[in-house]
Design a protein around this nucleic acid. Sequence first.
DNA 1: CGCATATTTGACAGCGGTCAAATGAAGTGG
DNA 2: CCACTTCATTTGACCGCTGTCAAATATGCG
Lengths: 242, 242
Amino acid sequence: MDPRYVLDEMRASPFFADVEPAVLADMAAHARLGYFEARTLLFRQGEAADRMHLIVSGQVALGQGGEDGRQTVLRILGRGEIMAGIAALPDGVYPAAAEALERTGTLSWDAGFLRSLAQREASLTYALLRLVFARLDEAQSRLREMAYERTEQRLALTLMRLAGQMGVETEASGVRINLRLTRQMLAEMAGTTLFTASRLLSGWEKNGWLRSSPEAVAILEPHRLAQIAYGLTGRDGADEPV
Amino acid sequence: MDPRYVLDEMRASPFFADVEPAVLADMAAHARLGYFEARTLLFRQGEAADRMHLIVSGQVALGQGGEDGRQTVLRILGRGEIMAGIAALPDGVYPAAAEALERTGTLSWDAGFLRSLAQREASLTYALLRLVFARLDEAQSRLREMAYERTEQRLALTLMRLAGQMGVETEASGVRINLRLTRQMLAEMAGTTLFTASRLLSGWEKNGWLRSSPEAVAILEPHRLAQIAYGLTGRDGADEPV
DNA sequence: CGCATATTTGACAGCGGTCAAATGAAGTGG
DNA sequence: CCACTTCATTTGACCGCTGTCAAATATGCG
C-alpha cells in the first residue's frame, strides 16, 4: 500500500481540510484499504462500531431498519465522504447499515486507534464535530419536513437534496444525479411507499420535468421540482402543457 | 459571581464528566450567568450562534420553525443539559429557537472563547462530539418513526421519551413528567396536529392510562403506553375494561 | 427462453388533517 | 366577588391524501 496514495486521498476530502498535518500522517500510516462489491454490506446496524470509513470511490447507502423490516435510507455517500464517525466514540454501535450501491473502495481506521487519537488531537475531533453537526442539521430539517410537508413535496425535496449533493449540471440547465436509484430507495428517503413514489415520479416524467433510468435521474426542469418542493403548485395541479 | 458555584454546577452536569480539570477551570472563569423569565427566548432561530448554554435551573424548549409559521419542538431540555453547542463551530447559526418554559437560569460561554478552546482542547471537543452524536441518533430514530409509525404510536413514543428523559417515578409504578406541556407542544413533538393529539390524549385519560394537568403529565399505566407505542394494540382498539 | 427484479396501474378504504364551534379554565380589572 | 377577556382544550363533521393490496407489465440477466 502506497502511503503517498493514502495521503492524497485523504487530502482530497474536505473532511480533513483542517486536520493538522502530523495527525494526517499518523492516520495515513494506520489506514486500511477496503473494497466492497455492489450490494454488499460494509457494516450492519447494531454491530459494535469498529471502523470509520472514508469513501475513495463508489457509493454507499446508509439505511436504518426497524424491527418490522421496513427501513429508511438516511443518506447516500460518495467519494470523499466519511462514514461511521461514531467509531471515534467508546462503545459506539453502528446506528445504520451501510450498503455499497456499486463497487466501492474505502480507507478505514480502527476504532481503538481513532479513539485514542480523538481524545488527544483536537483538530481531528473538531473535524468530526463539524461533520456530525451538519448531519444533525439535515436530520432535523427532514424531521420538520416529515411532519408538515406532503409526500409530493418530500419526494421533490429528496431529489433536490440529492442533486445538491451529487448532481452534475447538464448542458440544458438541468441536473443529473448519477446514482442507481430504485423507486424503493427514493421512497425510503422521502418517507413514503414505493407505490406513491412511483406514481409521482412517473407523473413528473410524463410532464417532462425529469427523466429516470436505472443508471441515473436527470432533472430537466429544476424550477418545477422546486415549486413542488416548496408547495407553490396550486392544489389543482393543472399545469399548462408548456 | 462565585466561581465555586459555577464549578459545582458544571461538575453536576454529565456533559463535563470527562473534560479535563484545567479546561473546566478555564471555562468556569469565563462563564456568564443568565436568567430568563418564562416564555422568553434565550435565542432565535437563524441568529448567529454567539453563546453556548448550560441549563442550571428551569426548562427550555428547542423549536424549529418553517417559513409557513408551523414549527416542531425538537427537544425539551432541563437541568444539567447543554444547548447550542453549535456555538463551538465557526460561523454557526442557531438551527432552532430556545424558549424558556419556566424561569430558567443558565451558565453560558462566548462563542469566540469556546471556539479557541475547542480547537485546542480535545477533551472538550470530545464531550461535544458525544453530545451531538446522541442528538443525531435520536433525530434519526424519530425520522424512522415519522415515516412508519402512525400518529398514535408517535404520540405514545413522545411521552415515553419525555418520561425517560425527565420523568420521576411515582408510588404507583407510574411516571410523572413535570413539565407544563400544552397539547400543542406535544403535537409538535409527535409530528401531528393539536386536534389529533387532543383526541388521543383525552381518550387515554378516559381509559385511565394517564392523567394530565397544566403542570404535569402523569403516566399511570406505562405498559399500556408502551403497547400503543410499539403497535401491539389490535387495530380494533377494543380494550377490556380492566 | 425463463426467472427474478423493478415498475406501473387500479381499486379501495381509513387515518388523520382541516375547519368550525362549543366548552372549560385562568387571570384581570371594576 | 363578579363580568370580561384570553387562552387551552374538546368535540363534531368532512374529505382527501396516501397507504395497502392485487395484478399486470416491463426490464434485465443467466
